[in-house]
Design a protein around this nucleic acid. Structure first.
Lengths: 331, 331
DNA sequence: GATCCTTGTGTTTACGTAAACATCAGGGCA
DNA sequence: TGCCCTGATGTTTACGTAAACACAAGGATC
C-alpha cells in the first residue's frame, strides 16, 4: 500500500479511500491511484483490514453433512448468493447432532472470525431451546421457529398438504405416511400437516411409520405396508424413503400406481427416472438462500436480530407414481 | 490479551507463548495464564494473528456445485479432514467451468487470505494446461494428471476395468458404454479403461454413447440402445445415467438383468434400492480427502509443490442389475 | 572458578489497514 | 471584506498478535 501511495504521489490514506470506494476523492487522483494499484499488483490485506474494522466479509455455515438432499442444495445455494454479495463462506460439517458438537463448531467459527453464522438443519438438536453463545448474528435454515434466532424455511406444512390433498382427490380413502426421524423439525411439520389435512377431509388417520430419511428405512416401511391390504396411497417424507417403499412393493409384485400410489418430498434429480417416475414436492432452494443471506446481512449491518420467520412456498410435481385407487372389488 | 497478562502477572508475550503452546514456559506460570484466560473468556484474534504470521489456518476450496455425487462427497470429506487438522475451509462454488471463472474464484480466495487452494473436479476446464496464478499451494482433486500441481484421484481406470470384466465374466460377448461428458477427465479415463479391457479380452468394441452425467441423458441413451437387439450388457459412467438407462428399458418392457445387464459407477446412496438394485463401483472419498489434505499441508509447511499423483482404489459392488446374458435363442 | 549454554521471561517492534483528527484551499453568503 | 462551511488530502494513531532481541539466573563444562 505504501508503494502504491508513493507511485501515485499521494498518502496511504488516499489509497485506502480509493480501495474502499469512498466518494471524497478527486477523479484524477483516483485514476492515478488505480493505475498504480494495477501496475504494482496491489491487493488489500484482509487480515489487516479485519483487524481494524472488525469485519471479515465471511459467513460461517454449520451443516450436518450433505447426505440429505435439502442440506446439500441449501448449502450450495447459500454459498452462491453470499458470493454475489461479496461474502465468502466458511464451512463446518458436523457428524453428530449434539448440542456439544454445535457449540464446538460455533467456537471454531468465532475463532476463525466470521461476521455471522448460518445453521442448516438446526432442528435435529437435542435441546429445542438451543443456547448459542451471544455476540454473533445467527440465521437458522430449516429450524425450529421457537428459537430466538431468525429462521428461514420451506413451508413444509404447505408441501405436505399439497401431496395429501392430491392423493385424496384421486379418490383414495386415506393416505398412509412414512415420516422422517422424530427429532427432525421438518419431518414433524410434514407429519403434522399430513395429519391435519386428513382430519379436515374427514379421512381416517392411519398409524405413522417412522424412517430416518434413508432409502433403507423406506424399504423397511414398505415391507410393513405389504401386510396391510387396505393401503392404496403412501406419502413418504422424502424421495429416498419413497424409493425404498417402491422397491419393497415392486419386489413383492405390487403395481405402482395401479395398486398403490406413492409420493415423496424433495424432488431430487433422480426422481423423474424412478420406476415409475415419482410424484413429489419441489422446494425452491435458491429463494431460500436469498432469504437466509439477506436476513444475515441485515443483522450484520444493523446489529439487531429481527425475530422474523420467512417461509418459502414449495410446489407439487405430479408424475406417474400416483393415480386413482384400484376398484373396490380388487382391493 | 493485555488483561490476561495483567491478571496472571506476566507479560503479554508470555500469554502469547501459552496460547501457542510453546515449550519454554514454566508449568506454574502456564497454569496461572490458562486460568486467567478461562476467567476472562479470552480468545485469540485471528486477524491480528494472521497479520503477523501470514498464516490463516484456512483452506480455499473451489467446486462446481454439488449435483455430481462425487463432488459433494469429496467436499464433505475434505471439510471434515481439514477440520481435524485445525483448518477451516472457505468454499467457492462455480457455475460455469470456464478458465475465467476459475481465475475469478482463485482471486477471491486469495483476497480472503487462504493458505492453500483445493480444486475439485478440475478436469472439466477448457484448457488442459490451466495456468493458475502462482504463490499459493494448490491440490487438484479428480483432475488431469498432466497439470503441474499435485493431484489426488480415485483410480478411475481400475473401477472401469472391474465393472467391464465383471460383465464379461458373466458371459456377455461384449459391454456397451454410456460415457460421461467428453470434457470430463474422469469420464475419459473410465471410457479409455473400458475400451482397453474389451480389447484385452478380445471382445468387440461397440460405439460409445455420450451423456452428461444426468439421469435424463441416461434415459436418452437407453432409448437408443432399445434399437440394438444385440445389446446384453451396459456400463454407465455413473449411477444416475444407469438409472436413466434402466428407466428407458423398463418402460419398453425389457427385463433387467434377464435380458440386459446394467452397471453404474459411484454407488450413490439410492443405488441399492433401484429396481433392480444396481451393480456399481464404490469410491473411497474419506481416503481421497485424507490424501488431498495431507498433500496440501505438506505444501504449506515446506513451501514446495511435490509433483505427486495419488490414486485411491475403488471397489466393485455387485447387486441384482447384472447377470448372465439370455440364451442365444432368445436374443 | 571462569566460561558458556540453556531456560524462562520481559521489552520493543512490525504487520497493513482504516478511523479520527488536522490541514488547507476555495466558494458562498452576510 | 470577512466569516464559515465544504471537499480533498495528509498525519497520527490504534487494532491484537508474534517475532526479534534483551536479559537474568542457574547448571554444565573445562
Amino acid at each position: 500500500m505504501a508503494d502504491v501511495a508513493a507511485m501515485a504521489g499521494v498518502s496511504s490514506q488516499t489509497v485506502s479511500r480509493v480501495a474502499n470506494n469512498r466518494s471524497n476523492v478527486e477523479a484524477e487522483t483516483r485514476r492515478r491511484v488505480l493505475s498504480a494499484m494495477r501496475v504494482l499488483g496491489y491487493r488489500p490485506n484482509t487480515a489487516a483490514r479485519a483487524l481494524v474494522t472488525g469485519q471479515f466479509r465471511t459467513l460461517g455455515l454449520i451443516s450436518f453433512g450433505f447426505s440429505r438432499f435439502g442440506n446439500a442444495r441449501t448449502v450450495d445455494a447459500v454459498i452462491k448468493v453470499a458470493q454475489r454479495a461479496g461474502y465468502t463462506v466458511n464451512m463446518i460439517s458436523i457428524e453428530s447432532q449434539t448440542e456439544r458438537a454445535v457449540h464446538d463448531a460455533f467456537d471454531q467459527l468465532r475463532l476463525q472470525a466470521v461476521d455471522g453464522i448460518v445453521l442448516v438443519e438446526a432442528q435435529t438438536l437435542d435441546t429445542p431451546a438451543l443456547r448459542l453463545p451471544p455476540g454473533v448474528p445467527v440465521v437458522m435454515a430449516d429450524g425450529d421457529v421457537s428459537h430466538r434466532h431468525p429462521t428461514v424455511d420451506t413451508d413444509q406444512a404447505l408441501g405436505a398438504r399439497l401431496v395429501t390433498r392430491h392423493l385424496l382427490e384421486l379418490g383414495h380413502r386415506t393416505v398412509w405416511h412414512v415420516a422422517g426421524p422424530e427429532d427432525s423439525y421438518a419431518a414433524r411439520r410434514r407429519t403434522a400437516s399430513w395429519h391435519d389435512t386428513l382430519k379436515e377431509a374427514g379421512a381416517p388417520v392411519p398409524p405413522v411409520l417412522f424412517g430416518d430419511w434413508s432409502a433403507a428405512s423406506g424399504y423397511e416401511a414398505g415391507r410393513h405396508l405389504l401386510n396391510r391390504p387396505e393401503v392404496t396411497a403412501v406419502f413418504a417424507g422424502n424421495d429416498q424413503m419413497a424409493l425404498g417403499v417402491m422397491r419393497a412393493l415392486t419386489e413383492a409384485g405390487r403395481h405402482i400406481p395401479g395398486e398403490i400410489s406413492i409420493a415423496g418430498f424433495d424432488d431430487i434429480d433422480e426422481s423423474g427416472f424412478f420406476s415409475p417416475p415419482l410424484t413429489t414436492v419441489r422446494q425452491d432452494f435458491d429463494v431460500l438462500a436469498e432469504q437466509i443471506v439477506s436476513l444475515m446481512l441485515g443483522q450484520i449491518e444493523t446489529g439487531e436480530a429481527p425475530s422474523a420467520t420467512a417461509f418459502v412456498a414449495p410446489r407439487l410435481i405430479v408424475r406417474a407414481s400416483t393415480g386413482a385407487p384400484p376398484p373396490a372389488g380388487r382391493r
